[in-house]
Structures are given as C-alpha cells and as structure tokens.
C-alpha cells in the first residue's frame, strides 16, 4: 500500500515537472525612434523645384538636390519619390494651401511635398593667421586666403491633403577650404551632407534595439 502511495506521489511529481512553468519571455525588439513627422503615412514624396536665389553655372541645384535626397530617403521610404517642376513666379506659394492641394489633383494618394528656397554663395575671405614658417621654430603671421561656401536652405514639407506646412527649417551651413580653386559642386555636396544629417535626425526614424518582457502570467 505504502509503495503504491509513493508511486502515485512520484507520478504526480513528474506530471507537475512536465507542466510548463515559464511565465515570461525576454525579447530583444527593434523600436523605431520618434521623429517629428511620420514619413510612412505618405504614399509618395514629391520634390518640387526649389526657388533658386543665386545661380552657379557648374551646378544644377534642383537636379542635384533631388538625386541626393531621393537616394537617401528611398532607403527608408517604401513609396515612390518623384520630381515636379513648379512655377515660382506666383506670389507666396509656400503659404498658399489651395496651391498644394490642387498641384497634383489627378490622384487621391497622400503625398508629401519637399520644397523650399535655396541660396548658395561662394566668397573669398582673407585673414591674418599664424602659420609655421619653414626654416624657423616660430610661427609667422600671414595673410591667408580661404574660399568659403555658404548654403541657405529654407526647407518646407507640405501635406498634399491639407496644404499645410508640417515641417519647416532654415539651414545655414558654411564650409571653408584652403584650396581657393575648390570646385563649387564638391563644396555643395559636402554641405548637403551636413544638412542631411541634421534633417534626417528629425524626419527619418531609426531602429533602437531594446529588451522587453512579454508575460504569460
């Protein structure tokens, strides 16, 4: 009899052990970092021509801006990215909601317009700077020339359904070069890279790996 009771106890113990006892799972998940706007809520991104306030022969600004940003954005954005030429001779088109709502009235998909004004200048600056002289241990003060490029980019992101500006930022970036023959298109890309870093931090979401508990009981 005692043996039977022991056997039943052992059997119960084994059944108990075989029952699941896990009450939680630790999971590494990728959480999107918050951004000022949600690009994924749009089906298309339309780059319009920018209002160019100072032309430089070597650079086709609209083409370069579209190529540069569209190739970067398409890594994160699943929809289409297109270009549309617009007429900047009309007054105050940035604030004109009706203009943006009717600009591409042939489709009902949600679109985001990238538009704005651009001014890119080059300037030769001279300054008295200390420079190590070749044959002496002491630095010499010399009049040195530097070529500076400055980009003023007023960027506006406009929702096609409401015509409202959902993001705006004025970027003012400068870069100086010792080489006074530096080509403007190289400088333009260097500066665009800086703009991109600042802009994408605010509009493109990145993934952050974090640990979370998922609970059963």
């Amino acid at each position: 009899m005692k043996k039977k009771i022991n056997l039943i106890f052992i059997l119960f113990f084994l059944i108990y052990c075989s029952c699941e006892s896990i009450s939680q799972y630790k999971l590494m998940i990728e959480i999107p970092t918050p951004t000022k706007i949600d690009l994924s809520s749009y089906n298309k991104i339309i780059f319009t021509s920018f209002k160019i306030e100072s032309e430089i022969k070597e650079i086709n600004f609209n083409k370069e801006i579209f190529n540069f940003f569209s190739s970067e954005i398409e890594r994160e954005f699943k929809g289409k990215i297109l270009f549309k030429e617009i007429d900047w001779s009309q007054k105050n088109i940035i604030e004109n909601k009706e203009y943006w709502k009717t600009l591409l009235n042939n489709s009902k998909t949600k679109k985001l317009f990238f538009t704005g004004k651009l001014n890119f200048k080059k300037e030769l600056r001279k300054a008295l700077l200390e420079e190590q002289a070749p044959a002496t241990p002491f630095p010499e003060r010399k009049l040195i020339s530097r070529l500076f490029f400055t980009l003023n980019l007023d960027l506006y992101l406009i929702d096609s359904n409401t015509g409202e500006i959902i993001y705006e930022k004025d970027f003012k970036e400068s870069r100086g070069y010792k080489n006074i023959n530096q080509k403007p298109n190289y400088a333009f890309f260097d500066i665009l890279e800086e703009v991109k870093n600042k802009l994408f931090r605010e509009i493109i979401s990145h993934k952050k790996r974090e640990e979370r508990f998922l609970i059963i009981k």
Binding site: P34, R212, F213, I215
Partner: peptide, 18 residues
C-alpha cells in the same frame, strides 16, 4: 489581464505607436 495589457504595450512600441 495585466499581462495582455503589458504585451500589447510592447507591440505598440514596436510599431511606433507610442
């Protein structure tokens, strides 16, 4: 059920619905 609320919260985080 607290577990379900917790798990849903994690799922919403994952989807960026903060």
């Amino acid at each position: 059920n607290a577990a379900a609320h917790n798990n849903l919260a994690v799922a919403y985080e994952k989807k960026g619905l903060f």
